[in-house]
Amino acid sequence: MRRLQQQEPEVAQGEIEEEEVVSGVAEGDEVMEDADDGREYSSSTPTSTLTWISWFCALPGHEYFCEVSEDFIEDDFNLTGLNAMVPFWKEAMEMVLDVEPDEDAPKIPDVSIVEASAELLYGLVHQRYILTRAGLQAMIDKYDGGSFGSCPRVYCNGCNIVPCGRSDLPGLDTVKLYCPNCNDIYTPPSSRFQGVDGAFFGTTFPHLFFQSYREIAPAPFYRPPSGSSSSMSGRSSGSPQHSQEGRHTAFVNPNPHGGQKPAAGGVYQPKIYGFKVSERAKCGPRMQWMRLRPWSPEELDEVDSRGRWIDDDEEYEDEQEEEGEDKQMGEFDNVGIL
């Protein structure tokens, strides 16, 4: 059964967008040779110019998908376990790979059933493919091109974001977007992504992606440029001995496995008539911690694996743990209006 939808009008518009992705896939050249078998069948119909995969990735709302190489799909090892999750497995495989079905195979009465299966199959294979070297490469090309958009949070300064699932099982939640700067997830800005299953990207992808490309991952520490610390208040006073480090020279994260890009570390400070809202007010800030970064990487080690402060800081050695904290965010206490 050949795919007639490929001739639908979306193709024309989608093709243009998709072109850059196809050419952006670095290993595409090798892939094409292997994929020739599948293609030969398609090309026997003169009208069919696109593979099912190209067509699928060009549909509106499918902008986040990259094209999975056909040899990846054809390798049974990569599909282990998926046949139990996808109904009409054989037909779906044929559709995705543009293979002519057997003449004597029983026909599925409704094409839309197979289409749904093909989408599920492609999505689940996509989840696995984007964790491979080739898949990560295909996704970073899209990332660099800004295909996934940027973080809506103002203080992330337009950091590019990547698609993310909240579950690896299909049918549970739609695709979200992960920002490596604030380490948080966001709903895509357009409703056309609300039909895209998050499992087609998976829970692991964004984090493996930023582990693999550490140069685009923001570091976990941030020192505000001197003189303008007012907008990032709420952070700890920091250890003076670390203050010489920072961004005067080339940026280096001493953790070679961590993010190597300077972070956008600004934290919003609510103000009323120019005065910071005190944390002592009921409506005072309670969530700045979630966006805060220490000034230096060493400060991260001041908290142990159970989330407790390792109490060796002379700043509060004389005081009990709870009472000593006043100093840490002292900035709030004096400036608030309430």
Binding site: E302, V303, G307
Partner: peptide, 9 residues
């Protein structure tokens, strides 16, 4: 670290 800052607050 962030949660430790939160707990302090």
């Amino acid at each position: 670290w962030q949660e430790a800052v939160r707990d302090k607050q």
